[in-house]
């Protein structure tokens, strides 16, 4: 069987993005399951300490295309380099981060290679499949598991016939784990100049600036999150008040964002951010799978909901049956009273 490849994104600081390191950790496990090698694809320019950073994640080969025209990322040159590489290497599985880069690049690559791609997987496993229609047994397929239909169902997707099997995964979904600090792989340099054509530079970057979103819920230890049940933008102020006092961040469900209560940058879930805080307080959130997928790894979950049957309560450590507008002011009051 052929190897597992992970496309590694280069950050502004010329290092490798966290999401890619998480995927290398997952890729290493899959490679061990399948007894194949793990290979990293890095396309950029002057990436710092590349080998020292990646080998400890269990990387056997780093394919590195280093050229000033390859950084910052643009779609076509990266697509061309990857397609050339894959035509030679025939990967079994390829993983991309479900970022604005991965979600731009992976579909273009999949279309060119005519292979399957599954977006925003929340779990990846190896398994066998028997196709009843053709009476064919497929061994060791990649099971790509993702919520679909707005998070109302969970689908397991497979690519029985085509290779590579490709998937994107959001940041924070897989766990970043070193494999062995002494692990050593080898470096394969790709000569990008010999591959790239003039048409690959049809899109040029005129200007780019970081607008670091002030909202950083991903790294928050405590998150107070609100759903449609919060009821209004005004009621969300209570959540901000509690967050201020606890040193927490305010998150939201998709329904709350769609209703315009808060900005999209706060959305937790499959189409938002995946979080693992010490404490997650879900206020007026019913708990669709697409939301749970982004927060069910939280160490402690408290649900405040008027509906005792809200699905979120089933993964909560504590459920307070009550109205958000009524409960939160008292949480603030008793926190102040007891914290001194």
């Amino acid at each position: 069987m052929n190897n597992i490849f992970v496309y590694c994104e280069v950050t502004e600081e010329r290092s490798i993005a966290d999401v890619s390191l998480e995927l290398l950790s997952k890729g290493r496990k899959l490679a061990d399951d399948l007894k194949v090698k793990l290979e990293a694809v890095v396309i950029g320019h002057k990436v710092t300490k590349l080998e020292a950073l990646l080998y400890p994640f269990g990387v056997d080969v780093i394919h590195y295309a280093d050229d000033e025209k390859l950084f910052p990322y643009t779609t076509l040159p990266h697509t061309t380099v990857i397609i050339e590489l894959f035509k030679k290497e025939h990967p079994e599985i390829v993983l991309f981060g479900a970022t604005s880069i991965g979600r731009d690049l992976a579909p273009r690559v999949a279309s060119a290679l005519r292979c399957g791609l599954t977006a925003d997987c929340t779990s990846l496993e190896i398994g066998d499949h028997f196709d009843n229609k053709s009476q064919t047994e497929y061994r060791n397929l990649l099971f790509q598991i993702r919520p679909a239909f707005g998070g109302n169902i969970i689908a397991t997707i497979i690519n029985p016939e085509t290779r590579p099997q490709m998937a994107t995964v959001r940041e924070g979904v897989m766990k970043k784990e070193l494999y062995s600090v002494k692990y050593k792989g080898k470096l394969n340099k790709i000569d990008a100049r010999s591959i790239l054509k003039d048409e690959d530079f049809a899109v040029t970057i005129i200007e780019r600036h970081l607008e670091k979103s002030r909202i950083d819920i991903k790294n928050a230890q405590v998150i107070i999150s609100g759903g449609y049940g919060v009821g209004s933008k005004e009621n969300f102020r209570l959540l901000f008040e509690l967050a201020e006092i606890l040193g927490a961040q305010v998150g939201a469900s998709r329904a709350a964002v769609d209703a315009g209560f808060v900005e999209h940058g706060r959305q937790v879930g499959q189409t938002g951010v995946t979080v693992r805080p010490k404490l997650y307080i879900a206020c007026g959130i019913s708990g669709a799978v697409q939301h749970r997928a982004g927060m069910d790894q939280s160490a402690q979950i408290i649900s405040i909901n008027t509906d005792i049957n809200a699905p979120i309560n089933q993964i909560a450590d504590y459920t307070i049956i009550g109205n958000v507008a009524d409960v939160i002011p008292r949480m603030i009051k008793y926190y102040r009273k007891n914290s001194k």
């Binding site: 109302n152 169902i153 997707i157 690519n159 669709a288 309560n313 450590d317």
Partner: peptide
Amino acid sequence: PTKVKKIENVVFQHKESK
């Protein structure tokens, strides 16, 4: 190339919730 192997309705694992 992608086939749906399985569709599951959302099932919540029960956790002891107070």
